[in-house]
Structure formats: structure tokens, C-alpha cells
Lab assay of single mutants.
Amino acid sequence: ETFPLDVLVNTAAEDLPRGVDPSRKENFLSDEDFKAVFGMTRSAFANLPLWKQQNLKKEKGLF
């Protein structure tokens, strides 16, 4: 299941849709939104070091 970017960005855990893991908001973006937000594919993002993934998520309001 995916959700629009505005539902996930800068949203407190208690305000997220049911079933969304607040530590993994990026997994609930569509592939198109994911690429638009991070400028890379999911596989490229997954290959980044964890610290870099976290920094990007913070920068984009998805942490």
C-alpha cells in the first residue's frame, strides 16, 4: 500500500495512516514519488550506508 507524499512528510507517528511504520515511511511512497523525493531508485537508496539513508530521510521530512 502506498500513500501520497503529503500524508507522510513531517507527520508524527500517531497521525500516520494505520499500518505505516514511522521508521520506514519511505517504503510507503509510490515508486514515482520515491524517485522524485530522493532522486534515485529504491535499490540505489538501499545500497547507501545507513547513516546516509537516515540523513536523506531527515532532509526530506521522512524521518
Rank of each mutant, 00 (worst) to 15 (best):
T2E: 06
L5M: 11
D6V: 09
D6C: 12
D6L: 09
V7Y: 15
V7A: 08
L8T: 04
V9E: 04
V9M: 10
V9W: 03
V9R: 13
N10W: 03
N10M: 08
N10Y: 04
T11W: 09
T11M: 12
A12W: 06
E14G: 11
D15Q: 11
L16G: 05
P17I: 04
P17R: 04
R18G: 10
R18K: 15
R18P: 15
R18T: 13
G19C: 11
G19Q: 09
V20P: 04
D21T: 05
D21L: 05
P22E: 08
P22K: 05
S23F: 13
S23W: 11
S23Q: 14
R24Q: 10
K25C: 08
N27R: 11
N27E: 14
N27M: 15
F28M: 06
F28P: 02
L29K: 01
L29H: 01
L29M: 07
S30V: 02
S30N: 10
S30H: 03
S30R: 05
E32H: 10
E32P: 07
E32I: 11
E32L: 10
D33M: 06
D33F: 02
D33E: 09
K35F: 15
K35G: 07
K35A: 14
K35N: 14
K35H: 15
K35T: 12
A36F: 13
A36I: 13
V37P: 00
F38C: 01
F38I: 02
G39K: 07
M40H: 01
M40K: 01
T41F: 02
R42W: 02
R42F: 04
S43A: 14
S43E: 14
A44R: 08
F45M: 01
A46S: 12
A46I: 10
A46V: 10
A46H: 12
A46F: 11
N47Y: 07
L48W: 01
P49L: 01
W51R: 07
W51F: 09
K52R: 12
K52A: 12
K52M: 14
K52Y: 12
K52E: 14
Q53H: 00
Q53P: 00
Q53Y: 00
Q53K: 06
N55L: 14
N55Q: 14
L56H: 02
K57Y: 07
K58I: 14
E59S: 09
K60D: 01
G61R: 02
G61Y: 03
G61Q: 03
F63T: 14
